[in-house]
Amino acid sequence: MRLNEGVQSIPAVFKKSTGTLKKFQSFTGLVLILFLAVILSPRQHGTGRILFLTPENLSDIFRQVSENGIIAIGMTFIILTSGIDLSVGSLLALAATLCAKILTQMNPSIGQPLHIFLAIFLPLMLTTGFGALYGLLISKLNIQPFIITLAGMIGLRGFARFLTNNANIDIGFGDDISAVFANLISPKPVVITTFVVIAVIMSIILGRTVFGLRVKSIGDNSIGSRYAGIPVTKTLLFTYALSGLLTGVAGVLHAAQNHQGSPNDGVSYELDAIAAVVIGGTKMTGGKGSIVGTIIGVFIMGILTNTFRLKGVDINIEMMAKAVIIIVAVWLQQPRKARSKG
């Protein structure tokens, strides 16, 4: 018993800063993964430098996590309302294919800059529109987000394939407009900057705006939110539209970086995004979570992938390792209750 009291005083100390502790927990995970990555990293031939820590590798990781990161940020808002969006993978493919289609198969006589602008703008409008539609269906028809977005996942994948007759649309080779587009959007600094800017803006929106607070309160208690006079339908509509918009951004980046719009890309992206969100400490039941946490979750997954790639480990083993990481990360963040029995 005396021993127990000693143990209890430690969380008591930490409790004073519960808010920072929550971030701190997933941050500890990130530090741990970084540490492992450095230790396990092979050395560069010749110079003997740690391969993981080379600027090229670090910026590669940053670029690689950007798409998932942007999607996961939108997913964080949705999960905070105690919802889910299973359709982001299909939505990303739709945005990428539409973008490629506009670039290569349409030839409006409006000049190159405007043409490129449309190739970015129209996919974003489309994905935002689908997001808003989800929000509307979920709150008006009162159907669970899982079901609505499951339908979206299936239907939009079909829609993307239908648009291109199942074909990949290649872009960015040669010297036509699509090459200009790809050269404009795909460089590392552009991708990384987009990700960082979105992360900062969304973090501020979640933490400091009325909208952010409403998102959390709906996830915490949807009935109570109604009784408090919160515009639930409007808030859900905005939340899903926001996620749609961000997925669209990721889709455009995807098209540029991969030099193609493929209707078959983005499969299981929703699961990567959800995994990053939960590793980042956001509760699946909604109400509690942060963008910072999600970014950390995204990087934990990204660094893990990178480390395995550097070691040349089989991708199947990587997936098994990720499974373990997800469970351990979430388990570590469970609220500590006195486990001892008297």
């Binding site: 009325v210 607070l213 409403r214 959390k216 309160s217 915490d220 208690n221 009935i223 109570g224 939110s225 009784y227 408090a228 006079g229 919160i230 509760k283 109400g287 509690k288």
Partner: peptide
């Protein structure tokens, strides 16, 4: 059930209806 957001702070719970 109908009132408070149980995992949110006292302050957040108090301001929910006056956010405008």
């Amino acid at each position: 059930l109908q009132g408070l957001m149980m995992s949110m702070s006292v302050q957040e719970n108090m301001i929910l209806s006056t956010l405008d």
